[in-house]
Amino acid sequence: MSRPEASPKSYARGREPEASVALALLATMRRDLLALLRRPGAAFNSLAFFALVITLFPIGISPDPELLATIAPGLLWVAALLAALLSLDGMFRDDFADGTLEQLLLAAQPLPLMALAKVAVHWLTTGLPLALMAPVLGVMLSLPPGSYAVLVLSLALGSATLSVIGAIGAALTVGLSRGGVLLSLLVLPLYVPVLIFGAGAVQAAIAGTSVAAHLALLGALLAVSLVFAPWAIAASLRISLNG
């Protein structure tokens, strides 16, 4: 770790690339988590939004448990998806405003990887909590027993893809003053496959059929987006910052 203190003329040239990338990734994740911890409101908001939307449906449709049970998988998934979407806009916005995003782009580390660190923090602070909270709301919607584990698993897996793909939209709109609505317009069509396989997994669990195919496809979506999206996020960030 330690390095002799650099005298003004022996300029630090950075360390071995791999070590320095790992160090930078960890430092960035630590910094973002710390910043969120100091202001937990943002992460809490999307959870509250999730609960609120779920509350609206029985009021708007019917309190009939049987009806709710049939639509619960879809409702839970759509509401979680919207809650994740709501928090996307903030993924890069603070960093953009305070100039740290500009500095991130100037770092010698590869930007796609560094962007992925920020995506990971987003998932840890929104997608994962949403997935963990979903069973409680499932009970309120009379979600049939036996599908709860699949609900959590599909949401945890699917929301990671939502964060990765959503980051492209967030990066494209971070420089726009009113990017929020536009962001939903850009990102929601791309969310369709995740919704289909995610809600499908829960429905399959309720029907008692195999959920393996659904979960495998969700995993495949995550793998594909992890391969392609970081480059798109990096390119979008450069466009938003430097035109």
């Binding site: 494209l172 850009l186 798109a232 390119a235 979008s236 466009i239 938003s240 035109g243």
Partner: peptide, 9 residues
């Protein structure tokens, strides 16, 4: 450029 990236995605 932004539209190009989005189209490719």
């Amino acid at each position: 450029r932004a539209a190009s990236v989005l189209t490719m995605v």
